[in-house]
Simulated scan of single mutants.
Amino acid sequence: MREQFIWVTTRRIRPGTLEEFERAWRPEPCPQGLRQAYAYWSEDGQEITGVSFWDSKEDCDAWRNSDSEMRRREAMEPYVVEEKEGFYRGRELAIPVR
């Protein structure tokens, strides 16, 4: 199975700011090497986990160090209370058919 490169961020945001945060969160332009991205919200809308799949660690690092990402983080800053992130390598697990 093909190895995957994944960047995961989890942010706790201020109550009632999910809509504004989501507008600020979307990257412009779309990063080079980004294959797919997902966002998951907690029931109360105060915690968001983003999972993005990349062609390589180098592509992800280039985006993380870019001016576009710096501007995106500045736009999100007023809404973010806490942030954790990590970069991972992995692969799909085969689930047995029952």
Rank of each mutant, 00 (worst) to 15 (best):
E47T: 07
I48R: 01
W25Q: 13
A24S: 15
D44I: 14
Q46C: 10
W41M: 13
A37F: 00
A37T: 05
Q36T: 09
F53K: 00
Y38M: 02
K84L: 08
S56A: 07
E82H: 08
L34V: 04
G50Y: 02
A24R: 07
S56M: 02
Y40K: 12
P29M: 12
D44L: 05
W54N: 02
D61K: 06
W54Q: 04
A24F: 09
Q32K: 12
D44S: 12
M76P: 02
A24Q: 08
E20K: 02
E28D: 15
P31D: 03
T49L: 06
K84S: 13
Y38P: 01
K84M: 06
G33W: 01
C60K: 01
A62H: 01
M70R: 13
F53T: 06
D67C: 06
S52C: 05
Q32S: 13
R73F: 04
D44E: 08
E43P: 07
S66Y: 04
Q32N: 12
D55Q: 10
E28L: 15
R23L: 15
C60Q: 10
P31F: 05
M76D: 09
E43M: 10
L34I: 06
V51E: 02
W54L: 03
W25A: 15
P78T: 13
Y38T: 11
E69V: 07
A39L: 13
R71I: 14
I48C: 14
A62I: 03
D67E: 14
L34D: 00
V51P: 04
D67M: 09
A75T: 10
Y79V: 09
Q32Y: 08
R35G: 11
A62P: 00
W25P: 09
E85H: 03
D61F: 03
I48T: 08
Q32P: 01
S52Q: 07
V51Y: 04
S66L: 03
R72L: 08
S56V: 00
Q36E: 13
S52A: 10
R72Q: 07
E28C: 14
N65T: 10
T49W: 05
D44K: 00
Q36L: 09
Y40F: 13
Y40P: 09
E77K: 11
K57D: 06
L34N: 03
A62D: 06
W41L: 15
Y79H: 05
M76S: 11
P29K: 09
R72A: 09
A62T: 08
V80Y: 08
R71E: 15
C60N: 03
R26C: 13
E83M: 15
A75G: 10
Q46H: 04
R23W: 08
R23M: 15
E83Q: 15
Y79C: 14
S42Q: 09
E22H: 09
V80N: 09
G33D: 00
D67A: 14
V80P: 12
C60S: 08
W25C: 12
Q36P: 05
Y40H: 14
G33P: 02
N65G: 13
E82S: 12
A37R: 00
S52V: 02
Y38H: 09
N65M: 07
S66D: 06
V80T: 12
